Structures are given as structure tokens and as C-alpha cells.
Computed example of a mutant assay.
Amino acid sequence: MADPLDKATSKAPATLGEGCLSRYDPDDLSAEDGTEFPGAAELWEQVQGDCDDAVGGA
């Protein structure tokens, strides 16, 4: 019998490391992996500002 997982439409990229140190292998990633997120830099700055306010206000 054929492997039922062969019918899957997507596969996760290869990983490096184990457990908490597991991460995607950058050499296995391509432009097809991930998502488009043009506002990421602005969101990161906003979140960092919120964190600084919370720490400074404590």
C-alpha cells in the first residue's frame, strides 16, 4: 500500500537542531516559503515601543 502522506499538498521545509533549538534550514527555504508581510518593520517598531513603555512605566 502507498504511503498516505504522499497525498499531502504541502511539506514543511527541512529543519536543523532538535527540541527548543529546532529551526528551519535556511538553505532549504525559497521565495515560495513564508508569507508576504510588507508592514512587518512598522509593527516590530510599534511592539518594541510598547515593550519599552511597559518596562519604563513599572
Rank of each mutant, 00 (worst) to 15 (best):
P38N: 02
G57W: 00
K11C: 12
G17S: 04
G34F: 05
G49T: 12
G17A: 05
D52Q: 08
A12S: 06
R23L: 02
Y24W: 11
Q46E: 14
F37V: 13
Q46Y: 13
T9P: 05
E32W: 05
D27C: 06
E36G: 07
K7V: 01
T35N: 11
E32H: 03
T9Y: 08
L21N: 15
A31W: 09
P26R: 01
L29Q: 08
L21S: 15
C51N: 02
C20I: 14
L16G: 02
G19K: 00
M1I: 14
P13T: 00
D25I: 04
A31H: 09
D53Y: 07
T9I: 12
Y24V: 01
P4C: 06
D50Q: 14
D3Y: 08
E18S: 12
P13I: 01
A14W: 03
D53F: 01
Y24S: 08
S30E: 05
E32R: 06
Q48D: 15
W44Q: 15
A14S: 07
T9F: 09
A54M: 03
G56T: 01
D52C: 04
A54S: 14
S10E: 04
S10F: 11
G57A: 11
A58H: 11
G57R: 03
G17D: 02
G19Q: 00
D53P: 01
D52S: 06
K7P: 05
D27M: 08
E36V: 12
D28Y: 08
G19E: 04
D52N: 10
